[in-house]
Design a protein around this nucleic acid. Structure first.
Lengths: 331, 331
DNA sequence: ATGAAAGCGCTAACAT
DNA sequence: ATGTTAGCGCTTTCAT
């Protein structure tokens, strides 16, 4: 079955293209009788409007491009869900791209997405290289950078400070009396926000005359299995740690599982700390420490900024919205 | 900065639109000197081609629409990752939509996506209502239904039989000597594949003169927390079960955590069985039974079918590709 | 190797 | 309430 066009629908209804277009879009000034005929003709022909033509002609796509580093860590789908929910009812639609934590790929994907003429673009983090920044700036649409706060925003910024999150966690753990710290990480050269947390954490350790007694950083991405493996290894060589800080909750959960198998008492002997505040973490049979980040809300907030910026392009809007993660699991 | 057009690039390079277009796309018959001038002009103007115009004019978008029910269950991102990877290098690009396990929303999203004139469409499952099926059929593009096998495919089909997966799991558990079965589920009226697994499981139980001694089905979606809660409740009222079958691994993991807190020996006293074969499940300190489904490979396979169908639209292609889940964790 | 004309399917702007 | 004209930015086709 060939794709039918507006012209064919119009012909079938015995009206002009323009009238058919109006009827289909629900413009008020069409007689209800005519509208009926057009709708019926469209139905009859299984007509589906061509948005390429629509958007090219009307000069707006109502597309919101969103670029995240990964889909395999549940936090990003959660942000996306927040964005989608926040866009609901606005007539705008989110389109997602994955950069795989790769700056070059991110540049390419942003370029690709911009070629679809989105009405706004949401990207992850503030650490895009200069060339990408230039591209985003010259796109002439609202740019929202989400999830991080440590850096210079291009335009709008919704996120939290990962440096501070690391600091606060260290402060809380030191305050809880922990002294012999280890660090277990993954892909820090790519996951820059995780690196910022680690840096903040170390800074506070230093202020307290402490340091990481041992650290192990893998080059692959975070996963429960990796956290488990690295923890097993580390505890074999340095059994007297009393606190382990991880890239995130996935890694920390793996660490907890390792402890359970090894019979290490958590948190009495060893306190385990991650980041994110995943649902998984709070269901665990043993409590681990974590910083709860409002991922869905950040997505919803980014969507709200998009809507406001598009509804009133010349208005003066609040450019930065900061969130503070809440630390849980330390008793 | 206003968006620049091909015409402006051409003017800046002192050539016609057509020559500029050829140079930018790398058509062979352009003098390298001219090409240089055009590329430089484009660079200078931060030119980004307008794909709306490109696609409208050339009559192909190279878009592959993909509709999945959810993003909050990691299995779908995994399928998407497989699709994206399988499309790499083909010049085609995946675009994702989420139906929230809602047939009406799915219909709407498919309609929306079709209006972008994708070159192919991948949808989840075989249970679309008639109207949606009609829409897909009349789209005139390859349709690939993924993840399920139990039903009548519209066109291409890549998946596994969830009915059989349930049967096989029941067979294995009965074979392992389990007798007092319970079922813990969630949102079965929406997650039809989970319902098929349960039906297959019950069929085999019946063949063996057995049945679910107790079942608890919540109307919300699966999660670790929900599995934990339902399990705690069920074990309080029926403590003598020796096997619990769950919607999926998330629920089963919650069940395991409940058992750990209650001090119920897994699997000695109670065997816990899920579905999916998540990485999470294999990292658990205690082994649970599961059916490992090849999610990423199904995505890659769907992408392969898309490429083949588009490369050779009139060729005769294999229409159905079946996978068999592997059962693990039963000793 | 380069250019001119026509058109993809729709809507904005202006009639009537 | 309906129709006409022009044009969105690009590629296709046909010249040269």
């Amino acid at each position: 079955m060939r794709k039918s066009t507006l012209e064919e629908v119009a012909a079938a209804a015995g009206v002009s293209k323009m009238t058919a277009s109006r009827a289909l879009r629900g413009t008020p000034d069409v007689s209800s009788e005519t509208r009926q005929r057009v709708l019926q003709a469209a139905e009859q022909l299984s007509y589906i409007g061509n948005r390429l033509a629509l958007s090219l002609s009307s000069q707006r796509t109502n597309l919101v491009a969103v670029v995240v580093p990964s889909m395999s860590n549940i936090v990003f789908p959660e942000v996306l869900a927040g964005i989608s929910a926040g866009l609901e009812g606005s007539g705008m639609q989110a389109v997602f791209g994955i950069s795989d934590y790769d700056a070059a790929k991110e540049r390419e994907i942003i370029h690709d997405m911009l070629s679809w003429q989105p009405s706004a673009i949401i990207v992850t983090g503030l650490d895009q290289p200069e060339e990408t920044v230039r591209m985003l700036k010259s796109a002439g649409i609202p740019v929202i950078q989400v999830m991080d706060l440590d850096g210079d925003p291009i335009d709008f910024n919704v996120g939290l400070s990962h440096g501070r999150a690391g600091e606060e966690m260290a402060r809380a753990l030191v305050g809880a009396g922990r002294k012999r710290f280890g660090y277990i990480g993954s892909a820090l050269e790519r996951d820059l926000r995780a690196a910022k947390r680690k840096a903040g954490f170390e800074k506070v350790l230093k202020q307290n005359g402490l340091h990481f007694v041992e650290q192990q950083i893998d080059s692959t991405f975070s996963s429960i299995a990796l956290g488990k493996r690295l923890t097993t290894t580390m505890l074999a060589s340095v059994p007297d740690l009393d606190c382990l800080y991880y890239t995130n909750d996935d890694m920390a959960t793996g660490g907890l599982f390792a402890c359970m198998e090894l019979g290490v008492a958590v948190p009495e002997k060893l306190l385990i700390a991650g980041f994110n505040g995943l649902d998984l973490a709070s269901a665990l049979p043993v409590r681990i420490a974590t910083s709860r980040s409002p991922r869905r809300v950040m997505g919803e907030t980014a969507a709200r900024l998009v809507r406001e910026a598009i509804a009133d392009p010349d208005g003066s809007h609040q450019k930065t919205i900061a969130f503070t993660p809440e630390i849980t699991g330390i008793t």
